[in-house]
């Protein structure tokens, strides 16, 4: 093969495969847990915090880093809130000891 593969094409490969994985994994989720599924996916989508951290990375405070810091804060609400509330709900589904 001549030339390099454009990163966008590689991204597209990852994307299509991930959608397939998502499709199969999600159909296996029991309907009783659809609300925890939503809060968990919410927490997972806040992995966008990685982008926010990079934006806030440069040491001098300027327009870009301030936006990054705000994004870090917003995403952190979701990271903590999403996982904790999921945990709280899932505890309720624990088998009761008789």
């Amino acid at each position: 093969m001549g030339g390099n593969i454009d990163p966008t094409v590689i991204n597209l490969v990852v994307f299509v495969l991930a959608v397939f994985v998502g499709y199969h994994v999600i159909w296996n989720v029991t309907p009783a847990l659809h609300t925890p599924l939503m809060s968990l996916t919410n927490a997972i989508s806040s992995v966008i915090i990685v982008g926010a951290i990079l934006a806030a990375g440069p040491s001098e405070l300027d327009f870009g880093t301030v936006l990054g810091l705000i994004a870090v804060g917003l995403a952190s609400v979701n990271v903590a809130g999403g996982f904790l509330v999921t945990q709280r709900m899932l505890e309720m589904f624990k088998k009761k000891q008789k």
Binding site: N11, A18, V19, G22, I26, T41, I44, S45, V47, G51
Partner: peptide, 18 residues
């Protein structure tokens, strides 16, 4: 960032299925 793409796609398909 492949991780963001994967995580985003999982969530995206989850919401679509729901």
């Amino acid at each position: 960032n492949a991780m963001l793409i994967i995580a985003g796609s999982l969530v995206g398909s989850s919401g679509a299925i729901l």
